[in-house]
Design a binder for these strands. Sequence first.
DNA 1: ACAAAAGTGTTACGGCTACACCCATGC
DNA 2: GCATGGGTGTAGCCGTAACACTTTTGT
Lengths: 249, 249
Amino acid sequence: MPLTKGTDELELNLSVDCVIFTIENAGLKVLLTKLLPEMNWMLPGGFITKRENANQAANRILKFRTGVENIYLNQFQIFSDPERFTFSLPIQKGVLSEEDSAIIEQLPKRVISIGYFALANFESIHPTGGVLEEESCWCDIDELPELEYDHKQIINEAILSLRKEVYFRPIVYKLLPEKFTLPELQSLYEVILGKSLDRGSFQRKMLRWDIFERLEERRGGVAHKRPFLYRFDHKKYQGAIEKGLNFGM
Amino acid sequence: MPLTKGTDELELNLSVDCVIFTIENAGLKVLLTKLLPEMNWMLPGGFITKRENANQAANRILKFRTGVENIYLNQFQIFSDPERFTFSLPIQKGVLSEEDSAIIEQLPKRVISIGYFALANFESIHPTGGVLEEESCWCDIDELPELEYDHKQIINEAILSLRKEVYFRPIVYKLLPEKFTLPELQSLYEVILGKSLDRGSFQRKMLRWDIFERLEERRGGVAHKRPFLYRFDHKKYQGAIEKGLNFGM
DNA sequence: ACAAAAGTGTTACGGCTACACCCATGC
DNA sequence: GCATGGGTGTAGCCGTAACACTTTTGT
């Protein structure tokens, strides 16, 4: 697959980079990709096309990388340093098509990037696609490798923004499957906020918000009391918003 | 003064627009400018140059428009609709220099803009400068005229962002002179949040935060008890931050 | 039976709201 | 003296943290 459908359809100095978060094994991970084996890991991203806005570009890239639509997306910052984009891709005959090489040589020296973060449920996502048969992996935020460009900075800013957002909006459930237990939700909050929470207080706080629907089912297969399953309830959430409820942690 | 110092120094599809807030007569105002009499009012803004990042551009524009440096600035959103920039400037011989006309004809059809809001103290600002001897005015946010491009939308988003920010960070003092009274601070909060607050509770909350230094002086010339003057204390603020104090309203 | 973890009850504390009261000032 | 508005005191409510206790399950 060629890098683009044709240079003239892209805004070559405007890109979008996505920090896609997920939870796996009680750890907060981000999706990284490697364009070529000789390059460092980087964030999934791409140029904005001439006929879409930044949100549309981010959604397109997310769908391309994860196969999932309607993921939670948040535009959190712009990275506009004149020197941030130092394109180190080795241009070798045989690795890139003639067309792609020509495109890369035409790229401007300066690209500003719009940073998005996304929340994805690990089970429902299958990182695929990407250009040039590239690799991709979920990487724990405490074990980031060397990254291309300023992508490490982008991830760090994304984590800060995620925390800030989580501190006053109940968005973390988007990292979980449709049905989840309160202990699972709590462990999620603990990972993201980086501190432990009291179980009793946490449960009561969540239930007082009254935005989750408690199901009849319980999670089985555990060597202790089986916890109830809950599901996010959009109607209840809207109602709570209208009442001016405060979701602060 | 010509529009630019030379087209090749600008990123012609990247602009910055500033929503500069101030308080006057107990009303929240924004600074608007008019490039030419035939045009609608618009936000102060400009293209990013090749050697600066977005923050530097916003600071440069702010200094140019207000004469003040180190104003509080917050990058709050990007406006990237492909159709948002429909340049309606009437190009007439005699109004624009040959050079400027040539520049405008070269402008790309699409410009994305990075939205900033700024908080300025009314007394210390003297809106000046601007190109083409243009007018400028402070306009109440409840009485906005027709605006060029999508600038009305940008202002509305800026107001929302300002409120959000104010709800959990004590930044409003930046709209006041160095020394201010608690009632002045309260009236500011009331204007921005759009609701009235209890005086007693408000004062105690502010004092509990312990980020303002109470001076010996009082505000005179009033037909009632003279209120104390306060000053924002950066050291105390840093201390409060480190203690994890919550500045929620 | 026992360990492990879910779920619930209880208490104490702190912040917030609402209202009352007192004080200082200019007219 | 009086109206105006700043400053402070207080009682009640509510959310929260902390901890103890009970319940349910798999081994």
